[in-house]
Design a binder for these strands. Structure first.
Lengths: 210, 210
DNA sequence: CGCTTATGGATACTGATACTATCCATCACA
DNA sequence: TGTGATGGATAGTATCAGTATCCATAAGCG
């Protein structure tokens, strides 16, 4: 398969494919001569994955690269692989809330993790995001939202149970890792749109007259 | 309060505040003379909201503007206000999947909505995202993920229940609208980071040896 | 009153991101 | 043998989210 065919198969323009090759998102094709390479099903699949992540899940190209690299490194423990993908998904966003709000949020989260019995390493990037989010809610005068933290956490555990279940049937380790990553990322888009739909449905009934 | 003080109070640089003013994200201050305006607590609050949406929830400035506009239009029904905010949150993403996968996903979603008894208008933007996501999962060879659709939907309903509960205590309509919007958007960040943490915790235990 | 600093408003510039476009020396194939 | 595609390199573009600069004026100090 040559680049033109790859382009047709995935509906991605040739210059864009070249761009992904340059950026190292896509492995180079097998060179049969200095300007002739052939691509295969692996490339088609990878390209589709790249597009799903960038277009659907809005993941920046640089982070897609990190995610793919973590998928390709099957020499490290699975858990570490997942951790790397998580890290790529959580940009270091630092929102400036008041120190007090942050401190409060921090202890709220610590308490939550203890109550739930979660095992979290303190450097987990999602931890900082969670703390910032709760602090922001507080600062914006929505403390009632974070007071439902435990209930949310419980619902989230339910999700995660599903995430894991949906994935344990994968036969090989590589496929498992891939499913976890796809499930995590596209799952987020899935959950977000389901939530919007559910909200719309409920809000239509609930606030018809306001 | 002058612009310098506003800047200090929110930790947003003066040129950035001017940029938000230009873009219409922030209402102009009250002019006491051609080059002297005063800002108040409303501006502080609004600015904090803008920053939370852009920095934490990664919402593009143009969409923050639409969201704020929907919050400001208290002359339309609450449900319509929420709908506008939802629309601003769901960019029109293109479809990269095969027509067959899309058709399958479409009927899956239709069936889901019927089973759940949801009331959704066919133009709801989240609908297209949901369909595309399911089609993408299918195309990427992860049909097992979308087979859990109903279970996810149920968990999501649980969330939405919480979203609504957390918000009904708000006294005025304006506050209610604001809480719904903040709850929807920051809630998504909250859920996403909780999910990452729960996954990390579970995956550490589950796949220690792979 | 004068001097320094801040301000509102307009316009111009910047850096990052995600592509597109062009060029050229091959190369495959009709 | 010639026409079009290809790999690789380099350059250009559009958008986004600010930053920076300028200027005439106004505020606050001494």
């Amino acid at each position: 398969m040559r680049i033109g065919e790859l382009s047709k198969a995935t509906d991605v323009p040739v210059p864009t494919i070249k761009y992904y090759l340059r950026e190292g998102l896509l492995p180079a094709g097998e060179l049969s001569s200095p300007n002739q390479a052939s691509y295969d099903a692996v490339h088609v699949r990878r390209l589709r994955l790249i597009r799903a992540l960038t277009e659907l899940a809005q993941v920046p190209v640089a982070q897609v690269k990190e995610i793919l690299e973590s998928l390709d490194s099957d020499d490290i423990p699975l858990h570490e692989q997942i951790g790397r993908a998580h890290r790529a998904l959580t940009p270091t966003r630092r929102l400036t809330t008041t120190p007090e709000a942050r401190a409060t949020a921090e202890s709220q989260v610590a308490a939550l993790i203890t109550r739930r019995g979660w095992t979290i390493e303190p450097e987990a990037p999602a931890l900082a995001t969670l703390i910032d989010t709760i602090a922001a809610m507080e600062t914006l005068g929505q403390p009632h939202l974070s007071s439902y933290l435990d209930a949310y956490a419980e619902a989230v555990e339910h999700f995660t149970q599903l995430d894991i279940e949906a994935v344990t049937t994968r036969p090989t380790r590589d496929q498992l890792a891939e499913s976890v990553v796809i499930g995590t990322i596209l799952g987020e888009t899935l959950i977000a749109s389901l939530r919007l739909l559910a909200q719309e449905s409920i809000s239509a009934q609930r606030w018809k007259n306001r």
